[in-house]
Computed example of a mutant assay.
Amino acid sequence: MLSRTRLLAPVFFATLLVAAGASATTQFDLSPQQSGRVRADKDDALVRSIPKDFHFVDDGVFTVAVAPSGVPPIASYATDAATVIGADPDIAQLVADKIGRPLKLVAVAWEDWPLGLVSGKFDAVISNVGVTEERKLKYDFSSYRQGLHGFYVRKDSPIQKIAEPKDIAGLKIITDPGTIQEKIIVEWDRRNQEAGLKPAEVILFDDEAASSLALRSGRADAVFSVNAVQSYQAAVTGETRLVGTVNAGWPLTTDVGVVTRRGSGIADVVTAALNEAIKDGKYKQVLDKWNLGPEAIPQSRTNPPGLPKY
């Protein structure tokens, strides 16, 4: 069963965070100063490996585009409503540190990064961009995180695990309309019904605020949505918990990658920088700082397999 509820409440999530302000300020630094940002040491071997014919946009700096969303933890605005903070900016900082260049973050609209990268406005894009075979025709990727969706339930829920289609049989599941996660949950439900299991009730909400309210009020059993946002909300409010993750590419797998210009030669350097950060523990510190530990990858790869073009 599929039901749709359109509740547009753009300020609700911000209100929720304010209401939980004490725990938010304790667990997450949303200040523009980012005094606790994880930093890495310059790697001279990496600096020497930068291709001689690669020209940085600005001399002496590493210019990275990021598209801030409305909520942490991947990339959002700090409390000054101007400085971009989050896990992706912190990953960008690690790469910049490793190649010995100050980081220059450029906030862009999501739809503007492809043209900006190709036209040479920035050296890389680090903005939760999933690796796909179609995108690889135009860009190079250096993987740095899994793309995950998560199942979250109320903290006092009897549900302990949702790992496969049969686990949602008979449940009321909230998800986001017109998204990959909606396609996944609908397919899981279809398979269950073919197998004679109870149908799930799939409830569609347009924003995290409305889905959060519905879950906490008991109108649904679980939320299935972007893990990063749900993870942050769980840590801030203490009212929900993770019971399972599904790769965004299900039934395949896909990673999120640093995007660079195709054939520019810098992708292998970025990949090596990420692997050094994984090796020395700085990468883990960044993900743990933003409560994204489950999305860690063991190794960065240049142009790993991506989602196929359908």
Rank of each mutant, 00 (worst) to 15 (best):
R154Y: 13
P158A: 07
Q285C: 02
I203V: 14
S212Q: 09
Y144D: 07
P304D: 02
N128M: 14
K166V: 06
T271V: 15
A210R: 00
A195S: 08
I168E: 06
G244N: 02
E111D: 10
D58Q: 13
S211F: 15
N192R: 10
K282N: 09
V84F: 05
V226T: 00
D43R: 09
S157L: 02
P298D: 09
G70N: 10
S119Q: 12
L17I: 12
T245Q: 09
W250F: 12
D29V: 05
P32V: 11
F28Q: 02
S217D: 08
A109Y: 11
P305A: 04
L292P: 00
V246F: 08
L197H: 06
R48Y: 12
M1A: 13
V153P: 01
L115G: 00
S127W: 08
G196K: 05
V11N: 00
V118I: 13
Y310A: 13
P68D: 04
I91L: 03
T15Q: 05
R219G: 04
V131K: 04
F56A: 04
V84Q: 03
I50M: 09
N192W: 10
L252Y: 05
I168V: 13
V57H: 09
G265T: 04
K166H: 09
V246E: 05
A92F: 05
L148W: 02
P89W: 09
S157C: 08
T132E: 05
G293S: 12
L215T: 01
P114H: 03
I297G: 00
D123L: 02
P308W: 02
A234W: 08
V18K: 11
